[in-house]
Design a protein around this nucleic acid. Structure first.
Lengths: 213, 213
DNA sequence: AATTTCGGTGTACACATGTACGCTATTTTA
DNA sequence: TAAAATAGCGTACATGTGTACACCGAAATT
């Protein structure tokens, strides 16, 4: 089992994946791609598609997985930058904006399929976003010593705001991008501040109810 | 021009609109509908479609307009309830959740076309959401006497959070809905609180810079 | 009353789609 | 080395699509 065959197979599988990614654009969603188009772009006969995926859906789910992977790489980048010092919020937002400039179509894929017509796709995207949120939640809990529930609510809200800003960024002139980032940062500060205040109050309430026993 | 003819025309136009709305579901987006399907559902020959819309796109934009209208009715409902007393945030969230339970497919339409493949659709949806946001912004500015920028940022963030919660609600069991609403309310309180704090600080800064001249 | 307008129909066509089927050439296995 | 497996190809077909065109009958206009 040297694999000269399996190797070639893996290669054309990638060609299919890349072909699909390459066809995505602001005016072309994954669900508007046809099996034939993708196969042609990959330099394959339509029927050869089936040697690699049973379905366009199966290809699509693969793409979502790749997108999730890219997202997680992104987070690692952000953490590296943070370790070198700087505002967490500011760095996170800028990292995300760079991601969108470089991977607009991948982000579009996530945005679109999250509200798309396939339950499987929706679940896959939501899973990726949940990972993303939970990692942020952990960070907040540790770094800011927040109540678990408050930390989760803050993480969830922050991710929502950032994704929405990313969505806006996709239809933005580059010159407006900086301003959008600034607004987003301020909104995240609102949330952080509010979470902090309520986190304290939450503690107080619990203690006054004797829940620390 | 009595209009017995124009009347009938308006009627079948409505049939087309309703037919399209009727076909929408969690597994069927507007862009996946075909002209023929819609015409058939409306009891029309395919070619008759053109007597009313030049395009499926034109129908779609009409649907988005209707959705926006429904959204604004919703806001009036919310205001009525608020005048009778109660927490603004709580009532707004519950009103929105009711909207989604009753008009899931209309909300899906907005969600999907906002990130869809047609620039015209995206613009139309964003316009509706902007109206929605600006009215909330006005309210916040008046009721809470906030700085204009802070009020806008808060309104924008709040709408984002609520829409996102609405999106989650679409894939929710009814039993989890209440909990989702509670979480959303808390998140909105974070934002309101944060905006309030920063609103104060913002004032202070501006004054110390002599910007009140 | 004669003419025009127009909402609706049915036919027809070119085109794109998914996929079943059989074939070939090459790698893998026995 | 013989046999089996398999990636890829080409053909073929049924189905759904948008829409051009000619036509009809009733309402509107003159």
């Amino acid at each position: 089992m040297s694999g000269i065959r399996a190797l070639q197979k893996e290669k054309t599988r990638r060609q299919l994946i890349d072909a699909a990614l390459g066809q995505l654009s602001s005016e072309r969603s994954f669900s508007s791609l046809s099996l034939r188009e993708v196969a042609k772009e990959a330099g394959l006969a339509p029927t050869s598609f089936y040697r690699h995926f049973s379905d366009m859906d199966e290809l699509g789910l693969t793409l979502v997985d790749e997108a999730g992977l890219t997202l997680r790489q992104l987070m690692r980048q952000a953490r590296q930058r943070i370790e070198k010092g700087g505002s967490v919020i500011q760095i996170s937002v800028h990292t995300f904006m760079e991601f969108i400039e470089n991977n607009g179509n991948i982000f579009r894929l996530l945005l679109r399929e999250r509200s798309g017509t396939s339950p499987a796709f929706r679940a896959a995207v939501n899973r990726e976003i949940r990972y993303f949120t939970l990692e942020l939640c952990d960070y907040l809990q540790q770094a800011n010593k927040l109540d678990a529930e408050v930390a989760y609510l803050q993480a969830n809200a922050a991710v929502t705001i950032v994704f929405s800003a990313g969505s806006d960024a996709l239809d933005c002139d580059r010159k407006d991008l900086e301003e959008l980032a600034l607004r987003t940062i301020k909104q995240l500060r609102f949330i952080a501040r509010g979470a902090f205040e309520f986190g304290l109050r939450g503690d107080v309430r619990k203690r006054s109810r004797g829940e620390t026993k």
